[in-house]
């Protein structure tokens, strides 16, 4: 394992006590934490130079009744060791009424990601200035990227109701 990763791990563990740090691959660091400490961990990472938020993703673990948020962080740097690092900050939140603080104060480009997750997973990011629809054209009862959203049923309900177009001879 490279030096950057281990020193970062030690550094993090000395500041935070309820997190789990795993070095899964040579340059992949996974931090699992409670949802309240996301903000502090991310700002600490940002201060350490990991200033590029690559992605905010979400995985619906329907069996555990949890949504897992994944913040993928790397660094804008010309230092090759540090540049290789990808840090995955993960936190699990309940599927019912999922709520989380926005991280826009730390990474400005989190804005569209959070909007997207709000739309596709129904996560409410508190403090987000405009949680308005991003990609979809209508509201859904179940946010469509959740595992319990039945795409086939949706297609049948919506598109099968559209009447056939008749041509001049009255054929469908």
């Amino acid at each position: 394992m490279n030096h950057t990763g281990t020193s970062l791990k030690e550094n993090l563990l000395s500041y935070f006590d309820d997190i789990l740090v795993e070095i899964s691959d040579e340059h992949r660091l996974t931090i699992s934490c409670k949802k309240d400490s996301v903000i502090t961990i991310l700002s600490s990472l940002n201060r350490n130079g990991y200033n590029h938020l690559a992605l905010i993703s979400c995985v619906d673990w329907i069996k555990d009744n949890e949504l897992e948020l994944v913040y993928i962080i790397s660094a804008y740097t010309e230092d090759s060791e540090k540049g290789k690092m990808n840090i995955l900050v993960k936190t699990k939140i309940a599927r019912e009424k999922p709520e989380l603080l926005t991280v826009m104060s730390i990474y400005e480009n989190a804005e569209p990601y959070e909007r997207e997750l709000h739309e596709l997973y129904g996560i409410n990011f508190k403090g987000h200035p405009r949680l308005i629809p991003l990609l979809l054209e209508r509201e859904y009862e179940i946010p469509p990227f959740r595992k319990d959203f039945d795409t086939r049923k949706y297609v049948q309900d919506v598109f099968d109701k559209i009447p056939f177009v008749e041509d001049k001879k009255g054929r469908k």
Partner: peptide, 13 residues
């Protein structure tokens, strides 16, 4: 699967 695409932040932020 979640793609982090370069145009995303370019186009939206």
């Amino acid at each position: 699967a979640h793609f982090r695409t370069p145009s995303y932040n370019h186009g939206l932020t």
